[in-house]
Design a protein around this nucleic acid. Structure first.
Length: 556
RNA sequence: UGCCCGAUAGUAUAAAGGUAGUACGACUGUUUUUGGUGCAGUUUGUCUAGGUUCGAAUCCUGGUCGGGCAACCA
């Protein structure tokens, strides 16, 4: 087998199965989301695993919506899930629904009743819970456990036919009330829910529980490797029990540790709260760890796939550093994003020896990471420019190599300038910086012989356009909000979003393409937001550039 | 005080009884018309106590620590 890269434990299992000729060398995985929320980066890990493993071993992957609880599910979620998987770059073989199997599942249940392995219980939820005992005490049977097969058959049919209200009866597997594994203490198979299902409509008022739907669905589809997260480990004996009693295709369940990332939360329940209680603008808010949020933020499918690859898979609890995700998107965007200039906090700079009213067009390559630069765009230059306010310092420190009285810098793609003076208003705020430029230092044919340490970005006052720029930071101010005292929402980072209404951008950015990443030189990677309109551009900051200077400042 | 899962640098992840390696991070240096990128280098690790073995991160036993399990959720 392949020896080039080491295998993760799932690949090892697969290669062993393959070498044993198991299932005739057939590999079929499935990705089984419940359509009750949007997919997040944790699901992306599972998607990359399930689809990735199948692809690697010439297998296939089914997309199966685990829609056994009609009260929480909706087609809105089905649609978003399909879109997100496709966007990530994966293709499923069959699109299936657990609800496709409701008839079959019902027949399975009847078969178990006939074998004396399932019974109808009239007890309330509380009574059943109480009779289950506790991890250290065995459970006790409820009065209905000894009902006859005939009676169970009749009652179950009556349940299906809508003769009972919600909660009146359930169907339970008859296994072992004293099992040390709580999941084997006569688990529920069916409950009554008079609810409208997004696919089966009002056909059913009886819905199978996860444990009686998942493994059976796997078996019906003849899934060879059913990969799920660690919290299902205790369910595995039950998964196998049903398959064995029913004598159906023996799918096997394997578990891996779910993804956690610091400074965010990863449970659908919590994400739903953030949406419903308006802490964010929606499931696709760029601060959300959802696939749709990351997409809107400017993350690329490749960066997410690379991330999944780098974090690996194991059975150990983990918390990945958000910095790794950021590394992955920078890595991708550095190679692909076109460079542009934008000034977020402007201050005016006047070149006193450049002819007033004159404009010249300079050229800047689109992408310096690629041979040929992927072409150039022209950049207007004149005597009145904008530069970033923090690129000027009244009293520069030793290591500061930007602009300050007497200091020289290069204007990116343009000339070297020297600062001669500056103007302040009554409040002491710098309003204008006066410089002279070196005519023979023009980018591309610099004959000045002058070497400067700093290069700064700039914009031509007359031609700069304005845009709204949204700067995002981590959603939470603590590494593990779920583990803090009190409500996780108390730990939301109040500065997770900063909106700059009147940022200035290069005129060429009017042609920005949605879904494309741009590097605003020295500022970070940005992409057009879905709120953007032709007459009102809105950019999201995907991620900052690594900033050695900011780090230096923090030290002192 | 039942059952189950786990423990390798700061964070992840390899090493299938035989040199503890890789990535991210951190730190140095170097290149650079982005304090970006690239390149080179440095740094830090097998939870613990025993046992088996010529040899243990790996196998065995005890302990410690972390996580999970008693939803008519998935």
């Amino acid at each position: 087998m392949s020896e080039e890269r080491s295998l993760n434990f799932l690949e090892e299992i697969i290669e062993e199965d393959l070498s044993n000729g198991k299932n005739g060398g057939r590999i079929l995985t499935r990705f089984p989301p419940e359509p009750n929320g949007y997919l997040h980066i944790g699901h992306a890990k599972s998607i990359c695993l399930n689809f990735g493993i199948a692809k690697k071993y010439n297998g296939k992957t089914n997309l199966r919506f685990d829609d056994t609880n009609p009260t929480t599910e909706d087609v809105e979620y089905v649609d978003s899930i399909r879109e997100d998987i496709k966007w990530l770059g994966f293709e499923w073989d069959k699109e299936l629904y657990s609800s496709d199997y409701f008839d079959q599942l019902y027949d399975f249940a009847v078969a178990l009743i006939k074998m004396g392995l399932a019974y109808v219980d009239d007890s309330t939820a509380e009574e059943i819970a109480a009779a289950k005992g506790s991890p250290t005490e065995p459970g006790k049977p409820t009065p209905n456990r000894s009902r006859s097969i005939e009676e169970n058959l009749q009652l179950f049919e009556d349940m299906k036919d809508g003769k009972y209200p919600d909660g009146a009866k359930v169907l339970r597997a008859k296994i072992d009330l004293a099992s040390p594994n709580m999941h084997l203490r006569d688990p529920l198979m069916y409950r009554i829910k008079h609810a409208h299902h997004h696919r089966t409509g009002d056909k059913w008022c009886l819905y199978p529980m996860y444990d009686f739907a998942h493994g059976q669905s796997d078996a019906i589809e003849e899934i060879t490797h059913s990969i799920c997260t660690l919290e299902f480990v205790p369910h595995r004996p039950l998964y196998e029990w049903f398959i064995q009693q029913l004598n159906i295709f023996p799918s096997k369940q394997y578990e891996f540790a779910r993804l956690n990332i610091n400074y965010t939360v990863m449970s659908k329940r919590k994400l739903l709260q953030l949406v419903n209680e308006n802490y964010v603008t929606g499931w696709d808010d760029p601060r959300m760890p959802t696939i749709s949020g990351l997409r809107r933020r400017g993350y690329t499918p490749l960066s997410i796939r690379n991330f999944s690859e780098r974090i690996g898979v194991a059975r150990r609890e983990n918390q990945i550093d958000l910095g790794l995700l950021e590394f992955c998107i920078r890595e991708d965007l550095n190679k692909s994003a076109w460079r542009r200039m934008a000034v977020i906090d402007p201050v005016k700079l006047i070149i006193t020896n450049y002819p007033k009213g004159q404009t010249e067009l300079l050229e800047g390559e689109n992408n310096p990471e690629v041979e040929g630069g992927e072409g150039v765009r022209s950049i207007p230059f004149s005597s009145e420019l904008w530069i970033e306010r923090d690129d000027f310092m009244e009293e520069p420190t030793k290591k500061y190599f930007r602009l300050g009285p007497g200091l020289m810098v290069r204007l990116k793609h343009a000339y070297i300038i020297q600062c001669d003076s500056f103007v302040k208003d009554d409040s002491g705020r710098v309003t204008e910086i006066h410089c002279t430029y070196i005519p023979e230092s023009r980018s591309g044919n610099d004959t000045s012989g002058i070497h400067v340490k700093g290069t700064i970005h700039w914009l031509n006052v007359e031609s700069a356009k304005t845009a709204e720029i949204r700067l995002y930071d981590r959603l939470f101010r603590v590494e593990d909000p779920s583990n803090e005292e009190g409500d996780f929402k108390d730990y939301i980072n109040p500065e997770s979003l900063t909106v700059i209404k009147n940022a200035l951008i290069e005129p060429d950015l009017a042609n920005a393409v949605p879904g494309f990443g741009y590097q605003f030189i020295r500022k970070g990677y940005f992409t057009l937001d879905t709120d953007s309109r032709p007459d009102y551009l809105v950019f999201n900051r995907t991620v900052t550039l690594k900033d050695a200077w900011a780090k230096e400042l923090k030290k002192s």
